[in-house]
Design a protein around this nucleic acid. Structure first.
Lengths: 245, 245
DNA sequence: TGGTCCAACTGGTACTACCAGTTGGACCAG
DNA sequence: CTGGTCCAACTGGTAGTACCAGTTGGACCA
C-alpha cells in the first residue's frame, strides 16, 4: 500500500495531465477569474502545442469538476464555484443557521415519526445514548450531529438527508460551542429524549413541536453570540479551550 | 407552443451526455461491478455508434468522477468506490425531491418577501424573464433553477442558499423533465409571476402559499413518474430526445 | 522446461474535415 | 440616421484516420 505508490509512475497522459493541472491551478488561484472566457479550443491547442483532442479532454475533466462551463458556439467560461467555498465570502451566523435548520429539521422530525421502523429507532436511540455518555464537549458535539443525521436518515427521504449533511460543518461548529457552555447546553438536554419519545410513539405533531423548541432554544440562550459568524466563534472558542489546557 | 415541431435538440452534447449517463448508471447500479474491465475505446465507440473521440471524452469525465481508472496499454477498469455519490446508492424520486423542497423553499419565499431589496428583486425579475424567453426546455430549466437560486439569495440566509444548491443536480433534472412536458409545465407557468409579485409587495404569507402551491403542483401532474428515480427518468428522457432528432 | 520474441491488443496523441449554433458587422430598405 | 436582414467568421460537437508507445499472451526455439 505504501510502497507501490512509487512504482506507479503517474506519467500517464503527461501532456493531458500537464495542461489540466495548469488550467486547474489558474482557475483555483484566481489567475483566471470567474466568468472569464477561456481561449477557444483551437487556440488553447496551439498555445500548449497540443492537439485539439487533448485540449477537449482536459476541458471535459474541468467541466466534470464544475470548474468551467462549456457552451457550444460561444466558448468555455470559468465557473463562479471554481474559486469559492460553499459559502463564498459569506460567514453564516448562529441565527442564520438556526433559521435554516428549523424548517428542514422540523420536517425531518415529523417524517421520522411517521416512518421510522425498528431499525431506524435503534440507530437514533444509540446516538442519543452516545450524547449522554460523551465524556467531553467534542465527543458530545459529534454524537449530537450523529443524532440529527440519524433522524434525517429515518425520514426516509435522501434529499433531506443530503441537504442536512451539506451544512454539517457549520452545524458541528455550533454544537461544539453549545455543548461547551452549560448555559446553552443544559436547557436543551431533555429535548433529545422528548423528540426520540415522540418518534417511538409515531406522534408526528409532537416530534415537530419538540424539534422546533429544541432549535429555537438557541435564539434565547446564545445572547450576544447570535449574530457572530460561526467560524469566528469557533476560532475564539478553540483559543479559549487551549488556554484551559 | 406546439410540443413536437418547434422542439430543437436542447441538450448540449447529446451524444456524449447519453453515453456518459449509460455508463455511469451501469457502474453505479453495479451492472458493471468493481474491477470490471470496460471494453476497449474502439469497441465502445462501435457499440454506441459514436466516434472514438466521443468515447474518450466520456471516459475522461468518468475518470474525473473517480468512477473508472484508465491504464494505457491495458484498458479501463471500474473503480471500487464507483458507487460513491452524495446520495450513495439511494436514488431520490420526484416525490422525495418535492417533499424536501417544500419546507425549505417555502421558508425561502417567506424570508425573501420580508427582506428582498431592490437589487435582489431585480435579479429575481431578470431570472423570471429568462424563463419566459427561453427558447427550449434546457434553457428554460437552467433559468428556472436560477430563479429559485435567486430567491434563496434574496432570503438573506446563506445557509438556506447552500442547502438548496446542494440539491441543484436533482432539481435541474426534474426541471428539465418538467419543462419538456407541457402537461407538467403549463399549469405552473403563472406561479413564478405570483411568487415574484408577492415578494415585490413584501407579502410573506402570500409568497409562502404561492411557493407551496408551485411545488405541490408536481404531486398532481407527474402521475406515474412521481416514484421513478430522478436519474432514471432523466436518462429515459434523454433517450426520448435523441429519438426525436 | 525455460527463455526469447513477435503479433495483436491497449490507450495517447495528432491532424483533418464537416456540422450546427452564436455573434458581430456589413449592407440595404425605410 | 434608424431599423432590420443577412452573411462571414467565429465557437464547440462529432467523425474518421493514422501513428506511437506500452502491455500481454502465445508461438517458437534453445
Amino acid at each position: 500500500m505504501s510502497s507501490d505508490d512509487s512504482f506507479r509512475p503517474a506519467v500517464r497522459g503527461l501532456l493531458t495531465e500537464r495542461i489540466a493541472r495548469q488550467l486547474e491551478n489558474d482557475i483555483r488561484e484566481g489567475t483566471l477569474a470567474a466568468d472569464t472566457k477561456l481561449p477557444s479550443e483551437r487556440e488553447l491547442a496551439q498555445r500548449f502545442g497540443a492537439s485539439r483532442n487533448v485540449v477537449r479532454e482536459v476541458l471535459r475533466r474541468l467541466e466534470a469538476q464544475d470548474l468551467i462551463d462549456v457552451q457550444p458556439g460561444r466558448g468555455s467560461f470559468v465557473t463562479a464555484r471554481g474559486t469559492r467555498s460553499p459559502f463564498g465570502t459569506e460567514r453564516p451566523t448562529v441565527r442564520q443557521l438556526i433559521e435554516a435548520r428549523i424548517p428542514i429539521e422540523v420536517e425531518i422530525a415529523g417524517l421520522a415519526a411517521q416512518r421510522a421502523g425498528a431499525a431506524e429507532i435503534a440507530v437514533i436511540t444509540q446516538a442519543h445514548q452516545r450524547v449522554l455518555d460523551a465524556p467531553d464537549a467534542a465527543a458530545k458535539a459529534r454524537a449530537d450531529l450523529t443524532f440529527h443525521e440519524a433522524l434525517a436518515a429515518a425520514s426516509g427521504n435522501p434529499v433531506l438527508r443530503v441537504m442536512l449533511s451539506s451544512i454539517g460543518g457549520p452545524m458541528f461548529e455550533m454544537m461544539l460551542r453549545s455543548n461547551s457552555d452549560p448555559a446553552i447546553a443544559e436547557p436543551g438536554v431533555p429535548h433529545h429524549a422528548e423528540i426520540l419519545d415522540a418518534i417511538i410513539h409515531h406522534d408526528a405533531p409532537k416530534a415537530r413541536s419538540h424539534m422546533h423548541e429544541h432549535l429555537a432554544l438557541g435564539l434565547r440562550t446564545y445572547g450576544a453570540d447570535l449574530d457572530v459568524s460561526l467560524d469566528v466563534m469557533a476560532t475564539r472558542h478553540l483559543d479559549q479551550l487551549l488556554k484551559q489546557v
